[in-house]
Amino acid sequence: MLIKDIFKEKTVISLEIFPPKPTSPLDTITNMLEEIKDLTPDFISITYGAGGSTKRHTVDIASMVKNKYKIEALAHLTCINSTKDEINRIFQLLKENNIENILALRGDHPDNQPINIEENQDFNYAKDLASYAKSYGGFSLGGACYPEGHLECKNTVENLHHLKEKVDNGLDFLITQLFFDNNLFYNFKEKMELLNIKVPVSAGIMPVINKKQVEKIISLTGASISPKFLKILDKYGDNPSALKEAGIAYATEQIIDLMANEVDGIHLYAMNRPEIAKSIFSSIGSIRKYAANS
């Protein structure tokens, strides 16, 4: 099923997983999927390795999610330094495996080298991939958006104009980068409406369960930590079990507030930790049912 059509029916609740390292077996993912299958997420997204290092794993896992576990799969696809022929081969692989949904991303350069934007490259930006995938046909296309702005954008106005270009090039829905203050999301949505960006948006939520994770999140995404969550870190940061419990509770509170405000969807970055997904899905079970029937 096309994910764009799921958004027409209900509040969409989804999960993200990432492939193991290329040298690792897929058993770890299989074990995790066995644990979370009964949560019945509306879709599971499967990330893409930097520079395409795990692209085969991404297709294999997406196929497993869709064809074995009967859960809709969203395959991440990056385009930087890829040719149209390479992207065509991936499209064909996805179609052969009954995958109908793609998250169209620019991606990062291998080994964290600076992105090289060249006129003779087939794809330099996610908007290029979105346009090409739309013309190829047969896929529902998602894209990333950034409530606090992309790290490479000069300001939030530039960030929103780039987002509009992506959407106008063929995106059907969006998934946000994680955020810790729901007001950032609500303000972002208001600005989207001013620019007439009207596709569904899933709010990306990540439960923080340890101090190192917070540091990594800030360095990679530029996400800010709300004063409320800073107090949690100050109080429980040196107690791993307490911080994990508090982090899950904080993320659950975010989700409840978002759903009360009729968000289009929730996308949970559960970090391949089934116990986190189970805890949160259990806490919002009745709310999820209510949202689906209202």
Rank of each mutant, 00 (worst) to 15 (best):
Asn31Met: 12
Thr40Pro: 04
Glu35Cys: 02
Leu39Lys: 06
Gly49Tyr: 10
Leu26Glu: 14
Val59Thr: 13
Val59Ile: 14
Val59Pro: 09
Leu33Arg: 13
Ile36Gln: 13
Phe43Asp: 12
Gly51Val: 06
Lys55Ser: 05
Thr47Arg: 00
Ile36Lys: 13
Ile46Arg: 11
Thr28His: 04
Leu33Ile: 11
Ile46Phe: 01
Met32Glu: 04
Gly49Ala: 02
Phe43Asn: 14
Lys55Leu: 09
His57Thr: 02
Pro22Ile: 02
Asp27Val: 13
Leu26Trp: 15
Thr58Asp: 04
Thr47His: 05
Pro41Ser: 08
Val59Cys: 09
Glu35Phe: 07
Val59Ala: 13
Thr28Arg: 04
Ile46Gly: 01
Asp60Cys: 02
Ala50Cys: 13
Ser45His: 09
Ser53Asp: 11
Met32Phe: 14
Thr58Trp: 00
Met32Gln: 02
Asn31Trp: 06
Lys21His: 02
His57Val: 04
Gly52Arg: 12
Gly51Thr: 12
Thr54Asn: 09
Thr40Ser: 14
Gly49Leu: 01
Ile44Pro: 00
Lys21Ala: 00
Asp27Asn: 04
Asp60Lys: 15
Thr54Arg: 00
Tyr48His: 05
Lys37Asp: 07
Ile29Asn: 14
Arg56Glu: 10
Pro25Gly: 06
Gly49Phe: 02
Lys21Val: 01
Pro25Gln: 14
Pro41Lys: 07
Asp60Ala: 15
Gly52Ser: 12
Asp60Ser: 09
Lys21Thr: 08
Lys55Asp: 07
Met32Tyr: 13
Ile44Ser: 05
Ser45Asn: 10
Thr28Asn: 10
Asp60Gln: 12
Ser53His: 11
Asp38His: 10
Val59Trp: 10
Asp38Gly: 08
Asn31Ala: 12
Leu33Asn: 15
Lys37Asn: 07
Thr23Arg: 04
Lys55Val: 01
Ile44Asn: 03
Ala50Gln: 13
Ile29Cys: 14
Ile44Tyr: 05
His57Asn: 15
Tyr48Gln: 10
Ile36Ser: 03
Gly51Ala: 02
Asp42Ser: 10
Thr54Gly: 07
Gly52Met: 01
Gly49Ile: 10
Thr23Asn: 14
Leu26Ser: 13
Thr30Tyr: 00
Lys37Leu: 06
Tyr48Asp: 11
Tyr48Ile: 12
Gly49Ser: 05
Thr40Ala: 11
Lys21Cys: 01
Leu33Lys: 14
Thr23Gln: 15
Thr40Cys: 13
Thr28Trp: 03
Pro22Phe: 01
Thr54Asp: 03
Lys21Asp: 11
Ser53Pro: 01
Pro22Gln: 15
Leu26Pro: 09
Thr28Ile: 11
Pro25Leu: 06
Arg56Ala: 11
Phe43Gln: 12
Ile29Thr: 12
Ser53Tyr: 11
Ser53Cys: 08
Val59Phe: 09
Phe43Gly: 01
Ile29Arg: 12
Glu35Arg: 08
Pro41Met: 02
Gly49Glu: 00
Ile36Leu: 14
Gly51His: 10
Thr58Asn: 11
